[in-house]
Design a protein around this nucleic acid. Structure first.
Length: 462
RNA sequence: GGAGAGGUGGCCGAGUGGUCGAAGGCGCUCGCCUGCUAAGCGAGUGACUGGUGUUGAGCUGGUCCGAGGGUUCGAAUCCCUCCCUCUCCGCCA
């Protein structure tokens, strides 16, 4: 979410950003609604203010003034005592039928009921306007950072660098699904019996490789990169999804538990970033680095037939996520560091990869700048996205109200970042295709061996 | 699932239907004092938001006491629903 004041004062910048990102809203309409809401708010607040001025003692005081002849009705309480409905009450007080206190009470009732009716209508209008403004606000994408290339599709992403060397094979490298099948690491035949297609059933060495990767990555990030490990729910509520920007736009992309209105997280970002929702942190606590392993769930509706061969695109996968909460001044340095942190995993696994700077049109809704890491998969002769590292600046922080108190005592929004470190199935695919041997066996990457009981090679068992 | 207790500011914790954004404390900020530190003394210290404006100075309003409804002229305070926390019981991986 952007600062509405900024949207008001510089709508052209917002229009430009929406155009570059290829998504957005009718800004003119938003500004109209916003203006109407503010006008209505002014009226509502004036009425409320007046109402707050009234209490029995005050009214009684006014009446005493009037009865003593020191003031006229029109002169006290902004003249509101001078209503026709009040005349009979005043007459009763004067004639001694009502005591002063009782009379004041009745008059207060008259004033209050009149004001209540006036307010009810306006408050309803205001609530409706606020809701519309809020809804539109939530659909404005984040500004892309000036360093992000402008473009419409993935074709215009920029390759920043390539790391590692693609190895030469003396044989035709096979795709990972063939290797996984022959080594009994993934059971493609029985998996659909459990939850349909798009779910992976790792078996034997495949399952162990998965677990080894998870442990390796978590150890690396906690021991060498300063991250604190988190293990949280994979189901989160609507507020969380709103906070990180999955909602309201992407509801249909997620699995939802209807009975409790909870969502299966598409990424641990959704649970981890929301840990500090509605909090005011201390500046001294920043930066905060968190890492979490989680299962991730994506409906991937409409993507059938596209890159779905093997384990490239599935409904459930495992991922180690990296999340940072940082001071706004440092967030772009932190993004570069995050990219290195994620890349380190691939370096150590000795898998060649490339770094992409996403163009404006290929970035997500909430991101200001995103780098993708793509690992080389020789069997498929293609690059696979295994990490996406983004700086959201204050976009998520504003939605989720994650703030910090600066040294100047002022409250500001933190900047949030996250990156995969890394997504597992595609790493498994890359390992299978990269470490395959001509005899059909698979070498175990050196850094994973301690996590696999010293195993150096996985061979077909027949 | 059943019974009970509770949810108040950065934190802890008072609060009788009207002047309560809310006592007190802690923390924090500034100042004093102390040859350092601690303690002590004094002052200040919520968030969000409308208007105005020297456009995040100042001034002036409004909202917020778990969330949402309701009663009332008026609700932190009374009623209802929901959520969450704690204690006890039951059930269970």
């Amino acid at each position: 979410m952007l600062d509405l004041k900024l949207v008001r004062s510089d709508p052209d910048r917002v229009r430009d950003a929406m155009k570059k990102k290829g998504q957005g809203i009718d800004l003119h309409k938003l500004l109209e609604l916003d203006r109407a809401a503010r006008e209505t708010r002014t009226s509502v607040e004036a009425l409320r203010h007046q109402r707050k001025q009234w209490n029995p003692k005050k009214i009684q005081g006014y009446l005493a003034e009037v009865l003593a002849g020191r003031s006229s009705l029109a002169d006290v309480a902004n003249g509101v005592l001078d209503l026709p409905e009040n005349q009979p009450i005043l007459a009763q007080i004067e004639s001694g039928v009502l005591e002063l206190g009782q009379g004041a009470g009745q008059i207060l009732g008259v004033l209050g009921r009149r004001r209540k009716a006036e307010l009810a209508q306006l408050e309803k209008e205001l609530a409706e306007l606020d809701l519309k403004v809020r809804d539109m606000e939530l659909h404005i994408p984040n500004f892309p950072h000036p360093s992000v290339p402008v473009g419409q599709s993935a074709k215009e992403n920029r390759v920043v660098r390539e790391c590692g060397v693609k190895q030469e094979f003396r044989f035709q490298p096979r795709p990972h699904w063939e290797i996984a099948r022959s080594l009994a690491m993934i059971d493609f035949d029985r998996a659909p019996k459990l939850a349909g297609s798009g779910f992976i059933l790792f078996t034997g060495p495949g399952a162990r490789l998965e677990r080894a990767l998870v442990n390796f990555m978590l150890d690396l990030h906690t021991e060498n990169h300063g991250f604190r490990e988190i293990s949280g729910p994979v189901l989160v509520n609507r507020d969380c999804m709103l906070g990180t920007g999955q909602l309201p736009k992407f509801e249909s992309d997620m699995y939802r538990i209807e009975s409790d209105d909870l969502f299966l997280i598409p990424t641990a970002e959704a649970s981890v970033t929301n840990i500090f929702r509605d909090e005011i942190l201390d500046e001294a606590e920043l930066p905060i680095y968190l890492t979490a392993f989680s299962n991730c769930f994506r409906r991937e509706a409409g993507s059938y037939g596209k890159q779905t061969r093997g384990i490239q695109r599935v409904h459930q996968f495992d991922k180690v996520e990296l999340v940072k909460f940082v001071h706004p001044d440092t967030s772009y340095d932190e993004l570069e560091k995050l990219l290195e942190t994620a890349g380190k995993v691939l370096d150590l696994l000795e898998l060649p990869y490339r770094v992409l700077l996403l163009c404006t049109g290929d970035m997500t809704f909430a991101s200001a700048k995103t780098y993708d890491l793509e690992v080389w998969a020789p069997g498929m002769d293609s690059w696979l996205e295994v990490s996406s590292c983004s700086n959201f600046e204050d976009f998520q922080a504003r939605r989720a109200r994650i703030r910090f108190r600066g040294q100047d005592r002022k409250v500001k929004f933190v900047h949030t970042l996250n990156g995969s470190g890394l997504a597992l199935p595609r790493i498994v695919a890359a390992i299978l295709e990269t470490y395959q041997k001509e005899d059909g066996s698979l070498a175990v990457p050196r850094v994973l061996r301690p996590y696999m009981g010293g195993l150096e090679k996985i061979s077909p068992t027949g």
